[in-house]
Amino acid sequence: SPISQSQFIPLGEILCLAISAMNSARKPVTQEALMEHLTTCFPGVPTPSQEILRHTLNTLVRERKIYPTPDGYFIVTP
């Protein structure tokens, strides 16, 4: 029987999409709110552990794709 394939999207890209959507909705993007958003909006995607989430967010900050503030994470705009 054929095996169904799913699209692979890197966690960093999913986080950027989620942060962008939450920023547009003016929702604060904390790590907890981000986990909740991922569970709700990406039900088929396994939720990352806190450690993996933190590591991926730090990587995105180093890559200058997002930036942290006391009010949460935001997408870097050119």
Rank of each mutant, 00 (worst) to 15 (best):
S1T: 01
P2D: 15
P2N: 15
S4K: 05
S4Y: 08
S4Q: 11
Q5C: 11
Q5T: 14
S6Q: 08
Q7F: 08
F8D: 11
F8E: 11
F8A: 09
I9W: 12
I9C: 15
P10L: 15
P10T: 11
P10R: 15
L11T: 02
E13N: 13
E13Q: 13
E13G: 12
I14R: 08
I14P: 10
L15S: 03
L15D: 01
L15T: 15
C16W: 09
L17S: 13
L17W: 05
L17K: 14
L17N: 15
A18R: 05
A18H: 05
A18P: 00
A18S: 04
I19T: 03
I19S: 00
S20C: 09
S20G: 10
A21E: 14
A21Q: 12
M22L: 13
M22K: 01
M22W: 02
N23S: 06
N23Y: 02
N23H: 06
N23K: 01
S24Y: 07
S24M: 05
S24K: 14
A25W: 04
R26H: 07
K27V: 07
K27D: 03
K27P: 01
K27G: 05
P28A: 11
P28V: 08
P28E: 08
V29I: 04
T30F: 08
T30P: 01
T30G: 06
Q31G: 08
E32W: 05
E32T: 13
E32P: 10
A33C: 04
A33M: 03
L34V: 09
M35N: 03
M35S: 12
M35E: 06
M35Y: 04
E36I: 08
E36S: 12
E36P: 01
E36H: 07
H37W: 03
L38P: 00
L38M: 06
T39P: 08
T39Q: 11
T39N: 14
T40F: 06
C41K: 06
C41Y: 08
F42Y: 03
F42Q: 01
F42T: 15
P43I: 07
P43V: 08
G44N: 13
G44I: 03
G44K: 11
G44Q: 09
V45M: 06
V45C: 12
V45Q: 12
T47E: 04
P48I: 11
P48R: 01
P48T: 02
S49E: 03
S49Y: 01
E51F: 04
I52W: 11
L53G: 00
R54Q: 15
R54W: 02
H55T: 15
H55K: 13
H55N: 15
T56D: 08
L57G: 00
L57D: 00
L57V: 06
L57I: 10
N58M: 07
N58D: 12
N58K: 08
N58A: 14
N58T: 11
T59N: 07
T59K: 09
L60A: 03
L60V: 01
L60K: 01
V61Y: 03
V61P: 00
V61D: 04
R62I: 12
R62P: 00
R62H: 09
E63R: 11
E63I: 03
R64K: 15
K65Y: 05
K65H: 13
I66G: 00
I66S: 00
Y67R: 13
Y67E: 13
Y67V: 11
P68E: 14
P68H: 14
T69H: 08
D71T: 12
D71V: 11
D71H: 14
D71Y: 03
G72K: 02
Y73P: 05
F74E: 12
I75H: 04
T77I: 03
T77F: 08
P78E: 01
P78N: 03
P78K: 07
